[in-house]
């Protein structure tokens, strides 16, 4: 990787956020954190993360239609859905996302691999 990628992680659980941050920083990413949809929007007003890793089960996710806002921003931010599988969350959101990883406590490599895949696809010139 020629350049440092900035990831925005949105998860309602602070410990998961912190854990993912720690893991991904170790891998050489710059990591931003958001605990709900509002924070996500607030952050992307000022910064442009390269990838949003979002758990669909966060507060204010639907009300603020985070996904639509991300798409309509001046720069399209790819979204990686990282969530617990349930019938409700697997909806149109996931289909429009750049990737989907089932949240699994026993395995983080899956998430890491998918992050690289999505980044490669969206920013091939930066590798």
């Amino acid at each position: 990787m020629k350049e440092k990628f900035t990831l925005l992680i949105a998860d309602r659980n602070r410990n998961i956020r912190d854990f993912l941050q720690r893991e991904l920083i170790t891998d050489g990413y710059r990591v931003l954190l958001a605990c709900d949809g509002r924070q996500v929007l607030k952050i992307i007003e000022n910064e442009t993360p390269d990838l949003l890793i979002i758990d669909l089960d966060i507060p204010y996710a639907d009300e603020l239609r985070v996904f639509e806002r991300l798409q309509s921003a001046h720069q399209v931010i790819p979204v990686l859905v990282h969530t617990l599988p349930s019938a409700e969350t697997i909806n149109g959101f996931v289909q429009r996302a750049a990737g989907f990883v089932e949240k699994d406590g026993n395995n983080i490599t899956n998430l890491k691999d998918t992050i690289i895949q999505v980044l490669r696809k969206h920013y091939p010139h930066r590798f």
Binding site: N13, I16, L84, G105, I108
Partner: peptide, 17 residues
């Protein structure tokens, strides 16, 4: 049950770590 799963995943992550 739904709410339990997230912290549970967190616990699993830490155990994994």
């Amino acid at each position: 049950a739904h709410s339990i799963r997230n912290p549970l995943t967190s616990v699993k992550m830490r155990l994994f770590s």
